[in-house]
Design a protein around this nucleic acid. Structure first.
Lengths: 239, 239
DNA sequence: CGACACCTTGAAGAGGTTCAAGAAATGTGG
DNA sequence: CCACATTTCTTGAACCTCTTCAAGGTGTCG
C-alpha cells in the first residue's frame, strides 16, 4: 500500500465543475488546490479503502470506475453504489472515523485524495465550499432514497431498466454516448446492487434483447429504445 | 399551515446530547440556542414537509414519531425511514433547495426548526457544530447502506427481525424498555419500509409468535427472545 | 353502536431463485 | 501464438418465497 503520489491542482482540472463548487474567485481557487494532498492510482480489482480502515480523507474520482460494498457479519455483501469520474467517495467514514464499506476499482483508476480535516478547515472560510460539501452529502442521501425505492418496490425488469437509464445518463453528462455503454461490472455485481441474482440479471437482459430494447454483447450495451426503458420504469404494476 | 410557534433553548433541553454536539462551552451553547427558530407542533397524520416544498430548515424531533416517504411519478411510494426523538430530518432538501420526500408524523409530535442558513453560519464558527453536522449526514448515509443491505439480500424473516432489533435498540437508547415496544406505524408502513406486503409482515409476526420469539397484541410487541432475533438476522442462508 | 381502518389467515399464483450444464470470453504459461 | 484454466455469461427446469385475492376478525372513534 504505497500509492503513486503526484502533486496536482484543481484549478486546471477539467473535472472541476463536477466535484468542486462553481463561481470561485482566483484566491479561493488557489486555496482549493491545497485540498488535494495527492493523487493516487488504484489498480483494477484493488481497494481504495476497506471496511474498518481509519477514515482520513474523501476521494474525488479523476478517472476509472468504482463499486462500494457493505458486508454482513456472516459474509453476505451488497453493492451500495457504482461511482465514476467526478464523483466523491468516502462519506461513509465521517461518522465513526472508520470506513464502513469497501471501495474497489472496477477499472484502473486515479483519485484525488482530500484530507477531511482540510476540507473542514477550508469550508469554514470558503462559503461555497461549505455549501458544496453539504450538497454532496445530501445528494448521496437522496440517491440512496432512490435505491431504496428501487429495491423495495420494483420488479426485476424495472430495476434493470432504471439501472441502465441511470448509468447512461451519468455517462452522457460526462460526454459519452446516450445510447452505448460498456459495463465495468459483472452481472453478479449488477445483481447485488439491484437485489437480484446474476441469472435474473442475465435473463432480463435477454428479455430486453428479445423485445429489441437493447443490444447486448457481453458488457457492451447499446440502447435501441430509451423510451421503452422509461416506460418500463414508470409502468404501473397492474391497474 | 400556520404552526404553533414557541421560542425555546437547546441549552436546557434534555435531548441535547442526542441532537447537538457535546463539550460546548457556555458561550457556544448560548449561540446554539439561537439555532432553533421555533418549535412546531405536528399533529398525527399531518406532514412536517412535503416532497417539492422549498427547503429552509432541518428539524430536530423533540417528541413524537415520524416516517419519511418517497414517491414515484406513477404513485408508488416507499417508506425510507422512521424517526424518533433526538433525530434530525430534512437532510434530503439540501441538494436542490427542495425536499424530495414527505415527513409525516405518526403520533403527535413537536420539532425544533433550525433554519439551515443559520446552521451553516454557526458551523463556520463553532467547529464542533460543523463536525456534528457532517456526522449526522454521514450517519444517515451509513444507515441507508444498512437498509440497502436489508432490502437487497435478506428474506422476510430476517428483515422483520432486523427491523425489530433496530427499533428496540433505538428506543432503549432513549430510556425505554429493551423488550417491549409499541409500534407507531401500520403493517403496511412496515412492509413498505422492508420491501414486503402487509400480509407478509403480518404472517411473519405470526410466525415469530408461534416460535415464541415475540408476543404480539396489535401494535404492542414484547420481545421474548432477543437472541433468537439476532440469530435470524445473522443466519447464513444455506451453507 | 355502527362505520372505518387495521390486522390476520387461507388458497392460488407469479416472479425470482436454485441447481445444473454448457458456451463464450479472458487470462496464463509454455 | 496457441493450449489450457478460469472467470463470466446464458439458458433450462424445478422449486420456493412472497404476492395476490379474498374473507373474516379486531379495534377505534365519532
Amino acid at each position: 500500500m504505497n500509492p503513486v503520489a503526484i502533486k496536482v491542482a484543481c484549478s486546471n482540472c477539467n473535472l472541476r465543475e463536477l466535484c468542486m463548487p462553481l463561481g470561485l474567485n482566483k484566491e479561493e481557487l488557489e486555496r482549493i488546490d491545497d485540498l488535494v494532498a495527492v493523487r493516487r492510482k488504484v489498480l483494477r480489482g484493488t481497494a481504495l479503502f476497506h471496511n474498518g480502515e481509519t477514515f482520513k480523507a474523501l476521494y474525488a474520482i479523476r478517472t476509472g470506475f468504482f463499486k462500494t460494498t457493505v458486508t454482513t457479519e456472516d459474509g453476505r455483501d451488497q453493492v451500495t453504489g457504482f461511482q465514476m469520474a467526478g464523483e466523491i467517495i468516502g462519506l461513509d467514514g465521517i461518522v465513526n472515523d472508520h470506513h464502513t464499506c469497501d471501495a474497489v476499482a472496477l477499472e484502473d483508476a486515479e483519485v484525488c485524495e482530500m484530507p477531511f480535516h482540510r476540507i473542514e478547515e477550508l469550508s469554514r472560510e470558503v462559503n461555497s465550499l461549505q455549501r458544496h460539501v453539504h450538497k454532496i452529502m445530501s445528494r448521496e442521501i437522496v440517491r440512496e432514497h432512490g435505491v431504496m425505492l428501487l429495491l423495495g418496490s420494483m420488479r426485476a425488469e424495472e430495476r434493470l431498466a432504471a439501472f441502465l437509464l441511470n448509468l447512461v445518463q451519468r455517462l452522457h453528462a460526462r460526454g459519452f454516448s446516450q445510447s452505448e455503454l460498456i459495463l465495468r461490472m459483472t452481472r453478479e455485481e449488477i445483481g447485488s446492487y439491484l437485489g437480484l441474482k446474476l441469472e435474473t440479471v442475465s435473463r432480463t437482459f435477454s428479455k430486453f434483447v428479445d423485445d429489441q430494447i437493447v443490444e447486448v454483447k457481453q458488457r457492451h450495451i447499446r440502447i435501441l429504445d430509451t423510451e421503452a426503458l422509461k416506460r418500463i420504469v414508470n409502468l404501473q404494476p397492474c391497474l
